[in-house]
Design a protein around this nucleic acid. Structure first.
Lengths: 225, 225
DNA sequence: GCACTTCTTCGAACATGTTCTAAGATTTTT
DNA sequence: AAAAATCTTAGAACATGTTCGAAGAAGTGC
């Protein structure tokens, strides 16, 4: 890598670090481009040269932390399906420890004020992680033979993202995150599962459901009679 | 209703209409609060008094059009589950006819720049509509007896919303909307279905999958070997 | 009919993401 | 070492969501 590119990479790194620290310290407020640039020791224009937008920077931070989570998620577990739920649980335990940090992260990551077309909220590394889990589940015969694993994986990611969106919008509390994601995952996985593996997933489904129903009391209930 | 309240309601109505027309005519650009206010014949401050934020206004427009869709979606169909997919198909056919309009709508509806806590992207009317469909499916014995219909309904709505988010972010094209939503719905519904009703849903699942896979060729493929 | 309440209005202001321009520094190429 | 290329920088500017304060209009209750 040329000296120029290296300096650029260093600036990039400093910007991401600055953003992460600012979120940690000041949360939502305080995470302005001017603040990020100042903290990274670059001018306001530079982050736009290197990333293009604020959202891109935040997504980079988000990917960093998600990869960090995943390093501790691949522990041995009985079956691949259980490992999927376990990985989710690990990730969300970090969220529970520092909700403000992660909430800010997702708030900005899901922000689409800018009109830049930038779809991928998933990096090759994360993709590979989940692919390993899901394809192992398929190899174990837990999933329908005909199902497309790529689509299933993306669907799970979509569920995760939409629960985050709900959280960000104030629809659920941080304590509901795990059951909410778990319920969505269980529903989709049972939908993709073979008859033999369904009972085990159904059990999880009902557990998560119980947790969610318990907390629903205070929610606005416009359930028709 | 007092005269005061009536005038307020009238202003409210005019604001929503102004927003809808502006989206129709100018799309994303041109939908500024100043433009909405001017078109509605009120001052810039008034929409904030009546709605609180731009997003709230757009969500009101979105609800309007979704209720409109649903009026044509409850046509007779063999089974309740099929009717669910049919309703989705009807809705999305409107999207296909006027993608710009709906894309702008969802872009703004999913925008969370403001920090207002405003979760509900679902109104009592829409809730009732979907509740009717889902509870009928349950009555027909298509769904697991133990499943909580409220949670299932919200999960489907979440899937819908996240597909819209993906669309808005440029991840998929308007032609992919129906198979993408259909796939997600089929996955979740099969996950909530009894063994007897699963084969029928599985058939749909595979149909949607086929459509999605066909179009995936050009997408960035970082599928590991 | 008068005082009170409640909004609306007008105008200004603020915050912040993003862009633009001209000048300057650093690296690469010749 | 000179010249060219590539970024960065400083600073201003723009667009736009949102808020604020003071003044005014309209409805409501006595």
């Amino acid at each position: 890598m040329s000296k120029r590119e290296e300096a650029k990479a260093e600036r990039r790194r400093r910007i991401v670090v600055a953003a992460r620290e600012l979120i940690r310290e000041t949360g939502d407020v305080g995470l302005s481009m001017r603040a990020i640039a100042a903290r990274a020791g670059v001018s306001l224009t530079t982050p736009y040269n290197l990333f293009g937008s604020k959202r891109t920077i935040v997504v980079a931070v988000l990917e960093d932390v998600r990869e960090f989570h995943e390093r501790f998620s691949s522990l041995h577990q009985v079956g691949a399906v259980d490992r999927i739920f376990h990985a989710v649980s690990i990730s969300l335990s970090y969220y529970a420890e520092d909700p403000d940090f992660y909430r800010t992260l997702w708030t900005e990551a899901l922000d689409m004020s800018g009109k830049e077309i930038r779809a991928d909220l998933i990096t090759p590394q994360r993709y590979a992680f989940w692919w390993a889990l899901i394809s192992e589940a398929a190899r174990e015969g837990a999933l329908l033979p005909g199902i497309d694993l790529d689509l299933l994986l993306r669907n799970l990611d979509l569920v995760f993202g939409s629960v985050m969106l709900t959280w960000v919008l104030g629809g659920i509390g941080v304590d509901d995150l795990e059951p909410a994601v778990g319920f969505g995952y269980a529903l989709a996985l049972r939908g993709a599962a073979t008859a033999e593996s369904q009972p085990r997933i159904e059990k999880r489904l009902m557990e998560y459901q119980k947790q969610l129903v318990k907390r629903r009391k205070k929610a606005v209930a416009f359930v028709p009679a």
